[in-house]
Design a protein around this nucleic acid. Structure first.
Lengths: 271, 271
DNA sequence: AAATGTGAAGACGTTCACAGCG
DNA sequence: CGCTGTGAACGTCTTCACATTT
């Protein structure tokens, strides 16, 4: 557990095999009592479970009691083989000839993702973006609640956003401890982000969602995910340029018939 | 070019090998005049170039004229072998025994990403999140400008955000055409997102950055990238649960010594 | 008959380790 | 001697195709 290791793989799934201890085959971990029968979940699978969960919820709302891998896969934007393999890692929750029970699958995935009780999240940086995040209803409906808002600007402290008071960053330690917060969202300017992350970690936070366009360095055992809006656009820009160079006519897609979707067919792209 | 194909691989790099035509070996594409010597860029590399670019800019600001792969890799949060391999796909822009020239690399990457001139972007949905995006300075400084804001709410039309007027969605076609927009950001509620995407595509948009938590179906040749904030938190939640189950003590990271960073060491994760 | 679960094959991505150049 | 560039090894992820089950 002390090797050179990727930092903030942004969208990119992290990889790299740690030293020994090929990640416990079932029960034998320190905490023990770890669910049996399935032992490891591929990171790529973990990243897709939330999408399946969202799709399942919409099937549930539509009144479906079962779904086929085909239907669920389509709703989640993946192919059905992948979906089945992903779900098989959770154990077997499907019935051959029928499909999956929506309710059972929802429970299973929520349990695996640790969403059985609403998690308290702290938001640091109530500027432009932070303000919007604080008001975003999507968090509440999908397993999270902002337990605390924090900012460095004294003028903002005391202000209420969505009913929540803004605390000063100097109180971050007590805020984290009082609410038992493990996950924090960093939406500060770049220049403040690393210092904020350090304080969060020192206070006990073990997962950070970083919106500041910079790499955060954190201790081992702390997870960071990064969302960088400009990077997403730059990736799209690359593909625009590629399309222009390879001769798409620009105004209309090459293949006019709306079918599945675009998103880079090839693993590699001609320049 | 008409096979079953992944839809919206969100953070996940798309894959799947198209039929014949193993993506043109250099010049032989319709448009031709395609830069020589390098022929294909792995999608994983494309996704990292923006991060390198950001790191390079900060080296440039600090007055450095050259960087070693080691230093640049650290700043971008990857390991140096990966960085060198990525850059080698662009041709050789380093000097052995010395490193890379910052200015040259910046130009090269910007050119590959199609950032040589500022791209006009349309933003649809000026609600909570859209409003914040419209005001986000990070876009402007990294190759983009919002050329138009669009919303469905008549009450919002005419309003000015950041100096830009909000147009009605019924004018979307003319807005796209007038500004020659290829890239659009969708920040509408879920229920409107697909219809908006359809209209954008019909008007000529070929890349969409989707903030609505749903899968968009678009024609072949159109690229979609998705940013889902709740999904990011759910992935972190999974890792929190994993840490709890495998016996981390919760309040403080297992390995107290701040080193590289966290972000899931293993490709697979014990449950 | 329909749809899941899964071995096996293949594509892709990462890392190693060193040859080769400046 | 230092650092880049890269072949080769390795690991991971995806896809295929079919045996298996209800």
């Amino acid at each position: 557990m002390t090797q050179p290791r990727g930092t903030q793989p942004a969208q990119t799934r992290p990889t790299s095999t740690t030293d020994g201890a090929r990640a416990y085959p079932a029960a034998d971990a320190p905490g023990d009592g770890v669910p049996e029968e399935f032992t490891e979940l591929p990171e790529a699978t973990v990243a897709r479970l939330p999408e399946y969960l969202r799709a399942l919820h919409s099937f549930a709302e539509a009144g479906h009691e079962t779904v086929s891998s085909e239907a669920l896969a389509a709703a989640a934007g993946v192919n059905s083989a992948k979906l089945r393999k992903d779900l098989s890692h959770l154990g077997s929750y499907g019935t051959r000839g029928v499909g999956y029970e929506v309710g059972v699958l929802v429970d299973q995935i929520e349990s695996v993702l640790g969403l059985t009780e609403r998690r308290a999240v702290a938001l640091v940086g109530v500027g432009n973006l932070g303000h919007a995040l604080a008001g975003y209803a999507g968090f509440a409906s999908r397993g999270f609640r902002f337990a605390a808002l924090v900012d460095a600007d004294p003028a903002r402290v005391g202000e209420r956003i969505n009913g929540l008071p803004v605390h000063h960053i100097d109180d971050i330690e007590s805020v984290v401890r009082d609410h038992g917060i493990q996950i924090a969202v960093v939406a500060t300017p770049v220049h403040a982000a690393q210092a904020v992350a350090d304080r969060l970690v020192a206070a006990g936070v073990t997962s950070i969602l970083n919106f500041a366009p910079c790499v955060l360095t954190v201790p081992d055992g702390v997870d960071v995910r990064k969302v960088d809006l400009a990077i997403e656009l730059q990736i799209l820009s690359f593909h625009e340029r590629r399309k222009a160079l390879t001769g798409a006519t620009g105004s209309h897609p090459i293949v006019p018939r709306p079918s599945a979707n675009g998103s880079v067919p090839n693993g590699a792209v001609p320049l």
